[in-house]
Design a protein around this nucleic acid. Structure first.
Lengths: 163, 163
DNA sequence: ATTGAAACTTGATCGTT
DNA sequence: AACGATCAAGTTTCAAT
């Protein structure tokens, strides 16, 4: 992972639909070299192809619910409760956070009358003690490519730091 | 938007690196038809090409902070505060939620000593009254393709409902 | 690890139904 | 709107450095 990889990554995330040719055109690096580097980045698990983002609004899945789930502490329960939460239909993100034993869960739903159902599913998980949900009125930002949230300098620092 | 589109969408999100050929092979729909349909879905803004997901851990951006930001209510402040939050480096998701005038903000950072800095930036925004942050110990799930969180039946119901 | 050139695959177009 | 045939374009491979 060197400066050249970062240059390529940056181009990949700036372009909407990157390809060896496009990245090559933008960076001036020959496309066969870009191909070689991208292959390596994929092999190393740093990036994976994952095409197409969806506009949730357009398909009626724009109801977003953010829930704080408290669970009682027990050996291994982070994982068990976390996995149980992860497999519930509509659940998109599950974070296990510091402090009390709790989770932040973000889910999408097609309609408001499914909300009760969803929360019920959270509460029925063994170990879960309390849930507290918020409706999202509007999603102001949701960037599928976190790399786009950073400047090139920050990326360089962050990526090259642990070599 | 019909059943055939849903079939194609489903194949697209099941495959890691979809293409007219692959989708055609999987669904049995001729690739020229798949091409035609995908083009339409793109034109309608339902999907957009957005290649490559990153493993944040591998590039030292795996520190996640979830913050609840309270702002005092004023005409148009939802938008102003939301936009201000959105442009802060590292901020990945911003939700404006129901109830009190508040936001849920998810950010990624390269290191813990940048956290103070981040929160400081939240608090300096005009109208922001209070922030409360949680460190994420582990990200149990974060699915870049929300469609993968649903069964085909739910998708069908949800997508076809508003025609 | 890099790259120019060759070989091959496939995405995109077109014309017909 | 669907799709078979065609072609231009891009991806991938390869050999030399």
């Amino acid at each position: 992972m060197d400066d050249r990889d970062i240059e390529i990554l940056n181009a990949v995330f700036e372009l909407e639909d990157p390809s060896p040719k496009e990245v090559g055109d933008v960076t001036g690096i020959p496309k066969s070299t870009v191909h070689y580097r991208l292959k390596k980045l994929r092999e190393d698990g740093i990036i994976k192809n994952d095409l197409f983002a969806v506009d949730l609004e357009k398909i009626n899945l724009d109801l977003t619910i953010i829930t704080e789930v408290d669970a009682q502490y027990r050996e291994g329960y982070h994982k068990d409760v976390g996995n149980a939460l992860s497999t519930i239909e509509g659940v998109n993100q599950v974070y296990f956070t510091m402090g009390d034993t709790d989770f932040i869960v973000i889910a999408h739903l097609p309609s408001r009358d499914k909300v009760e159902e969803l929360i019920e599913q959270y509460e029925v998980i063994e170990g879960v003690e309390r849930t507290s949900s918020k409706f999202v009125i509007s999603t102001i930002k949701n960037e599928p490519h976190p790399l786009r949230d950073f400047t090139l300098e920050t990326l360089r620092e962050s990526i090259l730091s642990d070599e």
